[in-house]
Each structure stands twice: as structure tokens, then as C-alpha cells.
Design a protein around this nucleic acid. Structure first.
Lengths: 139, 139
DNA sequence: CTCTCAACTTATAATAATTATAAATTCATA
DNA sequence: TATGAATTTATAATTATTATAAGTTGAGAG
């Protein structure tokens, strides 16, 4: 579990960090910092946004999670740090994991002299729910 | 040329728009809005940052260029609107076009119920110039 | 067990890219 | 060349995020 990994990295196990990790683990919704803050605030009344930002940065740098910058305005966070595709619905703005077969790559690799250490793959369009919704509307 | 396309779209051909288009056409450096503004300001003393932002948004929506959001802080712009890979060097922060063979896809397509209308592919690492630089340092 | 202190959290202010607003200007057609 | 909608401009507002500094705490040393 993440607790042991944090210890190995010399990071302190604070209640805030554990709460943020717990919120993200197994969470498919890729929340933003603000959403994480709002969801934890009731249980941690003293929680500050800065702590959420700090923690997310520390955990991302430690390789425990990844930043998802599929939207132009704010970052979202994924507890799965391995590179994989993400999908943003232009109707409901939901972010989904989306693996597209031939696109998985092992890093690092070199292309035309560029040393590629990581990559992101973002898809944009309409999610299954919203496609269904617009169908219903038309009937 | 772009002029005719803009006319077709019902967009006015202002000197500012033409200058921005010209700056971007055949420019491999993918400048940010601020860089575009700084470069044009001497020739257009009345130019306002808002105009640059407006124009870039209009042109992007018209499909004449694409936003490159490979960096977390600011947007960059590419006069080639077709989806293709981009690479950000973590040393010099330069952005390069980078096509990786098996990754080109025709849009739209569907994956697991998601209608994919567009996509972005961003690579992160060290560019050829900076790899050469660090080699030199070690010798 | 408790002392110690670097690491962490917090409140607050500062930053910086971008967006909104509204008045002045100008492109393009009649 | 007159007209009006589109555009540009200056300015203010927004908003996610980062910086700062003071107070708090986790966890190893003794």
C-alpha cells in the first residue's frame, strides 16, 4: 500500500496526506485539487487548500500519482501513475480512463534524437452517457 | 492560403489577424500568446494582449490552428491544426513537433462507447540539443 | 516516554495567464 | 462613402496556483 512507499521516500505520514491518498485510490473520477479540498474539508475542518496543492505536488513528484492536464483551466489527479489514455467529454466535462490498443509505450525510448521519458495521451469527444442522452432527446 | 479560408468563415481580415497568422505560419517554435504579443508589438504599437487572445481563440475554433497545452502554465499555438505529437524538453522548455509512427489516428472514431473527435499526444523528455549539451559537459 | 526539530500545515498574500466588459474603431458591403 | 456589425483596445475581474512566514506536529533519538 501507499503508506509503505511514502515511508520509504522519507515523507511524513500526516492525516491530510493519507486522506488525500485514500480519496484518490480507486477513484475513477480524477478530481481536481479544489474538488479534493471540498470533499475533505468537512472531515478536516482545519484543512487548507495549500496543503492539498502541496500534497498533490509531492505525491506526483514521488511518482505516486499523475497530473491530468486534459483541461485547459485546471489540473486533475489520477492515483494511477502509469501512462494511459484519458478522455474528456465536451458535454459533461467528465474525465474517463481510456486505453486505446496500439498506443501503449514503454518509457524511456528515443525518437529522432529526442529522449522520451514520459508521455500523455488525451482524447476529446462525447462520452457514452452523453451520447445516450442526446439520442433520447431526439426520440 | 489562410486569407481565403478566413473570408469563407465570415471572419474579418484585420491587420492584427493577418500578422498573427503570418507569425505562426511555418513557425516551428509554437509560441505562447505572450510571445506572439511581444513579437508583434513593435510593428503594431496599438496591439493589445486581449486581441492576441481573442484572435487565437477565434482561429483555433475555426480550425485554422491548434492550442498546444503541453505545459501546465500557459498555452502554446501551432499553425498546423492536424493532430500530431508534440515534445517538451524539460531542460530548455522548447516545444518540438514529434511524429511517432504507430500513433497517428484518423478522427472521429469510437472506442468503448466513447466518440473520439480529437486527441493530443504530448511527449516529455530531453531534446537533441540538450542531450548534446550535457554530453559536452561531461567531457 | 518525551524531547527535539525538520518537515508539515495553515492563513494569507502574491502571481500570472486568461477572460469579461464596455467604449472606440474599422472592415466590408450596400 | 455611409452604415452597422464585428473587432480592437484599455481596463478591470477572475481563478487556479504558488510563495511566504508563522505556528504545529510526526517520528526518531535518547
Amino acid at each position: 500500500m501507499a503508506v509503505n512507499r511514502l515511508k520509504k521516500l522519507g515523507l511524513k505520514l500526516t492525516p491530510q496526506r493519507l486522506a488525500i491518498l485514500n480519496l484518490l485510490e480507486g477513484n475513477k473520477k480524477h478530481p481536481s485539487a479544489e474538488e479534493i479540498y471540498s470533499q475533505l474539508k468537512p472531515r478536516f475542518p482545519s484543512l487548507s487548500p495549500a496543503t492539498v496543492y502541496n500534497t498533490l505536488e509531492v505525491l506526483a513528484k514521488a511518482g505516486e500519482l499523475q497530473e491530468v492536464r486534459i483541461r485547459g483551466d485546471k489540473k486533475h489527479f489520477d492515483s494511477n501513475p502509469a501512462p494511459h489514455g484519458h478522455f474528456l467529454c465536451r458535454i459533461c466535462q467528465s474525465i474517463y480512463d481510456l486505453d486505446v490498443e496500439p498506443l501503449e509505450m514503454q518509457t524511456p525510448f528515443s525518437v529522432k534524437g529526442h529522449l522520451v521519458e514520459g508521455y500523455t495521451l488525451y482524447f476529446y469527444g462525447i462520452c457514452p452517457v452523453c451520447q445516450e442522452g442526446s439520442k433520447t432527446k431526439l426520440n
